[in-house]
Design a binder for these strands. Structure first.
Length: 255
DNA sequence: GCGACAG
DNA sequence: ATCTTGTCGC
């Protein structure tokens, strides 16, 4: 048998397939979904993360006046911010948008996109929260635990918790605290005088490392480049038409 | 009970 | 998420 006690993390592809194949992970009602979050939450770990050579940005875009969506993943080289690889996957939402249950809506399409990646990014960055969540288990935690990989959540608006004012300059930050005083994330200014982004730990990374990385990944715009790249790709990507068979996922290789 | 509520 | 014009500023 291979894969003993010292087994390396399963390849990304296998981890995505395993998660997608487990029916217990994808309930159809809100009550069971919260139960899944409570069951998985204890697995979240916070730790330093080093040697982040490549980062994958994840995002999902929705077609206007339609029920179709596009999940996009773009892998960037951390040092140069150049694109290493990118994929898109089209589909239809199978769970309604419910604040607090975001993962049940966006994770399935994101996992189907991630499974087709050839590379194994050192870190995943998603549009949303990690521990800054009503039950401390947002999208970033959920994805991290399912794949047992480092994941960071970067959101554009606060969800739970509050923070004090922060300096006007890029790099300024203030702890995002839940009602009980726990630091569940940070409001981080990535551009002078521009609204901050909200960083929270998903899994296997800590807030210091996470904020440091987010700043390095956001040299010019408010949002980190990996998320910007995934966001743009999800918007510009043609939507497949399921009525005549899926259009088929698009693969993209840098020129 | 009511409002607010990641994307 | 998505629908939307111009405008101010680097």
């Amino acid at each position: 048998m291979s894969g003993g006690a010292t087994a390396a993390p399963a390849p990304l592809r296998a981890a995505c397939d395993a998660a997608l194949a487990d029916p217990l992970l994808w309930p159809q009602d809100a009550g069971s979904a919260m139960g899944v979050q409570d069951r998985l939450r204890p697995a979240v770990r916070t730790e330093p993360l080093a040697a982040v050579r490549t980062v994958a940005g994840l995002d999902v875009g929705y077609a206007p006046g339609d029920d179709r969506l596009v999940a996009a993943v773009v892998v960037l080289d951390t040092a140069t911010l150049s694109t290493v690889e990118s994929v898109t996957e089209t589909g239809r939402p199978e769970f309604p948008y419910v604040p607090g249950l975001f993962a049940f809506r966006e994770l399935p399409p994101l996992l189907r996109a991630l499974r087709r990646l050839d590379s194994e990014p050192d870190l995943l960055v998603c549009d949303g929260f990690g521990r800054a969540h009503p039950r401390r288990f947002g999208l970033a935690c959920h994805l991290g635990v399912l794949l047992d990989r480092p994941v960071l959540g970067v959101a554009k608006s606060p969800f739970v918790g509050s923070h004090g004012p922060l300096d006007r300059s890029r790099g300024a930050w203030s702890p995002l605290r839940a009602d009980d005083g726990a630091e569940v994330g940070r409001a981080l200014r990535t551009r002078d005088g521009v609204k901050p982004v909200y960083v929270s730990v998903g899994h296997r990374v800590d807030l210091d490392t996470g904020c440091d990385l987010v700043l390095r990944l956001s040299p010019r715009y408010r949002q980190p480049e990996p998320i910007r790249a995934a966001d743009r790709l999800s918007r510009s990507s043609p939507i497949g038409d399921d009525r005549n068979g899926p259009k088929g996922p698009q693969r993209h290789q840098p020129a």
